[in-house]
Design a protein around this nucleic acid. Structure first.
Lengths: 236, 236
DNA sequence: GTCTATAGTTAGATAGAC
DNA sequence: GTCTATCTAACTATAGAC
């Protein structure tokens, strides 16, 4: 009996609710992928999961919240893959490119409904706003992943502090580009990632080179000051 | 009689429809400012303008389209003010700061509903997407305004091509920050603008300085290449 | 706590008469 | 160009079964 309790503590059996929630999420994503976000209705989703509409709302306060839950899963997956794939990779450029390609790989079939993530970007109070209070935890988690890209690379103190935030912001931009990218396999986005990563790697080296650093450092310092002033550090 | 026709050609009398449209726009903005975008309904707006709901939809295909029409007006106003205020201002930093402060000045009372502009950022097909086909004209127009900030400043060829686009993109970011900024009179945003403009001015000078330019130029060239590859030039 | 069933509200959007 | 009537779908509310 004690053993059973212990075992369930180690690998807790999913409650009925958890399974239902997963089922709804899964069926919703099926529909989003097939029909797109707009066309799929909450009624459809509930029907596909063989639950009442109310059940869907019991687990997800809104349709967008389903996409948000999906994105949580994406982040978990991304963090895991990054841990695996980053070993042996050296240099900021190579590491950053790897992190981004992995992310895009995870998102590749879901461009049709990814846009829902950005719907509340301009509405500070909204629980699903990318820049809002309610999503701070996810933001930190995501920046943490990008911070991994810096491990083992030789860069100055200022960049070490600036880059995780900068890369996170840049990666949002890349995702928007990715959503718009109709090229085969989103090749253009992947190419763009390689180019940017490469340039960033080069620039990081350049700015730390003995000859150039004296000129660049004041700007880095001022940039840091400015961002702190702007409240960026409030949540770091 | 000829004179009347001529006069009306020069200053054409507004048709009934145009006046109705303006009335709806005006009343909608009143309500958005008082209640916010969400709370104000199309029914409220129509009632305030003393027309039927259908009439509002006859002129504006969606509620967001009203904000979009408002933003067109903003751009017109901004272009005019920039033309006035930029005379005598010298240096990239000072000119850019001026352009941005003027924009924020125009937007200052409307942060409550500005977020509606960004609602379709992640939906390429949508007529109101910031990055979509349908809004290309507005985008160009807006970049044109930022290009004014460069007039008379001494910067390299690459920057001359990169900056209008870069400033436009950056200014979108500033607007999002502005929307989130609860400081008195959005002082933080204005401060941020000054800092960024100042740094950009300094960086532009630095990168064109004889000692540093050889190092930096290759990066600028690659950046241009990359952006062209990415399709940025397709619409310029 | 996990749902069903059902009824109702709201508000964006549309169709068709005038 | 404007109105009335109507539709749709997100969302809410509630009462109750398990």
């Amino acid at each position: 009996m004690f053993n059973v309790a212990e075992a369930s503590a180690r690998a807790p059996r999913k409650s009925a609710g958890e399974r239902t929630k997963e089922l709804i999420l899964e069926k919703a994503l099926d529909l989003f992928r097939k029909q797109g976000f707009e066309v799929a209705t909450m009624r459809d989703i509930a029907r596909a999961a063989k639950v009442a509409t109310g059940a869907a709302y019991y687990y997800f306060p809104s349709k967008e919240a389903i996409v948000s839950a999906y994105y949580d899963e994406v982040q978990r997956l991304h963090a895991a893959k990054v841990r695996e794939e980053l070993v042996g990779k050296e240099g900021l450029g190579e590491r950053l490119a790897s992190v981004m390609h992995l992310k895009l790989e995870i998102l590749k079939d879901d461009r049709k409904f990814l846009g829902a993530l950005f719907r509340y970007t301009g509405e500070p109070g909204h629980p699903l706003s990318v820049f809002g209070q309610a999503t701070e935890a996810q933001r930190k988690q995501s920046m943490e992943i990008f911070r991994q890209a810096l491990v083992g690379t030789e860069i100055g103190e200022e960049l070490k502090e600036l880059l995780p935030w900068g890369m996170w912001l840049g990666h949002l931009g890349i995702i928007v580009y990715f959503i718009h990218d109709e090229s085969e396999g989103q090749a253009r986005t992947h190419k763009l990632v390689d180019r940017f990563a490469d340039m960033l790697g080069g620039l990081a080296q350049l700015t730390d080179a003995a000859l150039v650093r004296p000129f660049v450092k004041p700007f880095q310092v001022r940039m840091l000051e400015t961002l702190r002033e702007a409240g960026w550090s409030e949540e770091t």
